Computed example of a mutant assay.
Amino acid sequence: MARGSSAFVAALTAASVATVGFLAYRAQAGVPPNLGTRPGVSAKPTATKAPRDSRNPTALPSGSGVGERVVYSVDDDRVWLVSADERVENTFPVIPGSVDPAPGTYAVTSRSQQVTGTDGTLVEHVVRFTGVRGVVIGFSAAVDGAAPAPDPAVRTGGIRESRADGETMWMFATIGQKVVVIR
């Protein structure tokens, strides 16, 4: 086979894989919340809050997974960046959007250096990991450093960090990085 043909086939394969990935992501965002449940059974996962160390409220909660990962507590509005050897590399507070992800294990699906958020704010170091009924969920930092409370009337999935913490997240959470969401 000629060298040009191999490159063409490789490019075509890469484009096909990217297209299938994109379509799977879009399909997941459009799945009705009650799909696959029996009548009278809630589609929402029932997760209990992970145990906390009362002496050190910023300590990594037990039951938050294993291995290298980002841990995000919806109830505590806090993130932990955990190395493969279970050492907390960093932890910091965040300000969630108006839409929370369900507890579970995800992976970073896309990243953007700088975009405009769903609330109209210019954000940087965007690290996305899931979607909830059409709302993309991910970490980001406002370029102007502002951290206003989210407007509950606007469905937003941006979990805001300080600019310094956003840069730390950007360096840690590359495509495929595990993200564990806990209560």
Rank of each mutant, 00 (worst) to 15 (best):
M1H: 08
P61M: 11
K49N: 13
S6Q: 12
V108M: 08
L122Y: 00
D119K: 02
R52E: 14
E161R: 05
N90G: 06
F129C: 04
A2G: 13
A14L: 14
D53T: 10
T13E: 07
L35S: 08
R183D: 07
V94H: 02
V88Q: 02
I175A: 07
D165L: 03
I175G: 06
K178I: 11
S140G: 08
R52I: 15
D165R: 01
Y106I: 07
S5Q: 11
E89W: 01
V136T: 11
W80S: 13
E68V: 09
S16W: 05
R155M: 02
L12R: 10
V127M: 00
P57K: 10
T105L: 09
S64I: 13
V126G: 00
A102P: 00
L60N: 04
D119Q: 08
V79M: 04
A11R: 02
A10Y: 02
Y72L: 14
T156N: 02
R155I: 02
S16P: 03
L23A: 14
A10T: 06
A43F: 11
R111Q: 13
P93T: 09
A24C: 10
R55F: 06
I159L: 11
V88K: 06
V82N: 09
D144G: 11
F8E: 15
S73D: 14
G117K: 01
T37L: 06
P150Y: 05
G117C: 04
V126M: 01
A7K: 09
T109K: 06
V127F: 03
T121Y: 02
G97L: 01
T19W: 11
V143S: 04
E86I: 05
G65H: 08
I159H: 02
D77R: 09
A14K: 05
A173N: 00
G131W: 02
S16H: 10
A147W: 00
A146L: 04
S112G: 03
P51A: 14
P148C: 05
R78C: 07
A47T: 08
S16N: 09
G117A: 15
P101K: 02
G104A: 03
I182G: 04
I175L: 15
A142Y: 01
G65T: 06
G145Q: 07
P96I: 00
V99F: 07
G21N: 14
K44N: 12
K44C: 01
A107N: 09
V108R: 03
I95M: 11
A164K: 10
